[in-house]
Computed example of a mutant assay.
Amino acid sequence: MTEEFEEELTDDQIDRYARHLVLPEVGEEGQLKLLNSKVLVIGAGGLGSPLLLYLAAAGVGTIGVVDDDKVDLSNLQRQVIHDTDHIDHPKVQSASARLKAINPDVTINTYEFRLNDTNVDEIVQAYDLVADGCDNFKTRYLINDACYRQKVPLVSAAIMRFDGQLTTFRAFEDDDKPCYRCLFGDEQIAEKGSCADVGVLGALAGTMGSLQSVEVIKELLGIGESLENTLLLYDSLGTSFHRMKTKRDPACTLCGNK
């Protein structure tokens, strides 16, 4: 089957994306690039909610949503893509309905199951970029490894209590760029508590998910300064950002010197 690509904007799209079109860094060419882009979002929860909303609003043409969970009352403190009427509904269905209501230009692919070793590569390779907003280390490592193998950029965010972090991984490129394992080691030494155990400020998810959407759009358009080789740390109680330089670990079991 031949893929269809948008080659020019309709009158409605010119109105919808008017604030993008007047940006020299975006313009019509950039908006068409977004409309023809494919982004896979892992998790339709706290981070995924603002991320998905802003990607759809921006006109990212194909968005994949991976989540095997159902909407729970305790989610609504931070997962703003869902509402009370969708409690007990699959998150991917709730998110898809909301995104289609926001922007009919966007195609939503839903994956109502957990990623594993047998399905992750096939799904990842169908997208231009992956945005990871999941809530467990096992999936983060799985996604990191698949993106490295499939040579797909990965924009990764995480939150806990009052703190957030954000970075972009392109370790498959031939230079000093790290992967997730370079920064955080292997699974057996990286397990920590979860938000369910220690809590999380609901609005923090909005902050970090929105920042993540900006980085995704920058990567798709090739504008601005990438967060590759940089780990951005946000302390919401101190209202402070800290940028930490990162580099490949030669001993990394995935991308290090073999």
Rank of each mutant, 00 (worst) to 15 (best):
L115G: 06
E7V: 06
T84N: 10
V26H: 09
H82N: 07
S236Y: 08
F172W: 10
L21C: 06
G59E: 02
K258I: 09
E225L: 10
V66D: 00
F169T: 00
I159E: 01
G222R: 14
L154N: 09
R78P: 11
N229C: 05
N257L: 13
D117Q: 15
Q93G: 12
L201C: 03
Y111S: 11
C134I: 02
G238I: 04
P178H: 12
R161K: 15
T230N: 13
V200P: 01
M208C: 04
V155T: 08
D163K: 05
Y127E: 10
L129W: 05
V65R: 00
L51C: 09
D135P: 13
T253G: 04
R248G: 11
H82G: 09
D68N: 04
D69K: 05
K38I: 04
D128K: 10
A18F: 05
G30L: 01
G61L: 05
S156Y: 03
D163E: 15
Y234D: 02
K258C: 07
S94W: 02
D249N: 15
I108A: 07
P250M: 11
Y141H: 15
V65Y: 01
A131H: 03
V214P: 03
G59V: 07
M244W: 06
E25I: 02
R140D: 05
T230W: 01
G61P: 02
S236V: 07
A58V: 03
E225H: 11
E173H: 01
I143Y: 08
L129F: 03
I123C: 09
E6Y: 09
A57S: 14
K138N: 13
R78K: 08
K192C: 03
L34C: 11
G222E: 13
D163Y: 03
V65C: 04
G224W: 13
A196M: 04
K100C: 04
G238W: 02
E28D: 14
L23Y: 01
G133C: 03
K70V: 12
L21E: 07
I123P: 10
C182E: 08
D121Q: 14
G202Q: 11
P153N: 13
D135R: 01
E25Q: 15
N144G: 06
S236R: 02
S94M: 06
E191S: 13
A131R: 08
V71G: 01
Q125G: 06
M1K: 04
A171V: 14
D121H: 14
L55V: 08
N103K: 05
R16L: 12
R248M: 05
K192A: 06
D83N: 15
P24H: 15
I102Y: 12
C134W: 07
L99P: 03
N257V: 14
L23H: 10
A44P: 03
P90M: 05
